[in-house]
Design a protein around this nucleic acid. Sequence first.
DNA 1: TTGCACTTTCGCAACATTGCGAATAGACTG
DNA 2: CAGTCTATTCGCAATGTTGCGAAAGTGCAA
Lengths: 106, 106
Amino acid sequence: MAQRPKPAIDAVEILHRRFYEGKPTRLKSLEQTRANEEIARTICELRTAASLTQSQLARLIGTTASVICRLEDADYEGHSLAMLRRIAGALNQRVEIRFVPIRRSA
Amino acid sequence: MAQRPKPAIDAVEILHRRFYEGKPTRLKSLEQTRANEEIARTICELRTAASLTQSQLARLIGTTASVICRLEDADYEGHSLAMLRRIAGALNQRVEIRFVPIRRSA
DNA sequence: TTGCACTTTCGCAACATTGCGAATAGACTG
DNA sequence: CAGTCTATTCGCAATGTTGCGAAAGTGCAA
């Protein structure tokens, strides 16, 4: 599936500058950190809304309480899609993933 | 370690039956499989919409084309949040995650 | 046909997340 | 106070994902 080779090269450079040249690669972590905090809080809210303890939720998805505790830690950055889906499934929910465009201070 | 809270245990059992007793644990994989296919297709669409080849996108996020190819494979089930965010970031997007309740034939 | 760009598959090392138990701390009750 | 339940933290083995190159497959055009 060969497409246009010439206009794409420029896009690569533009995007690259936009995200890796202007910033020390640490800035992106800020947004991710907030996203992780939100995930942790969401898990905790869903669990408590279902009147479940960490141990009970852990048993539902076949793990232990320490794992749930780790997921609900705001500083945790290792959230995986697989784990989120397991939790969602146990709570009769599903994980919806969407890519939404970022508007940069426009 | 005696643990017997009376009110919550019921909820645990109910939820457990709802998801692990009535079905052979394979059914859940079906939904996940479709979700994975959708993710793969979304990545591919976002990439092509940006007029990028797999190699170019790979370079943007600091990996190789084979990795991108693997992510765009509909049969791939190892999608991680970290990778999705890397791709989204390179394409000037962000990954939105939501837990939505499942309606079982309302 | 050849050449070229793109995609796909394979294999394995490196890294990240999970699984799990045990110990600790906090809150609440009798 | 002791007793119980819950939440948190630590460490390490097991599992899973990523990183990467190389080779082969695909489609298009000269």
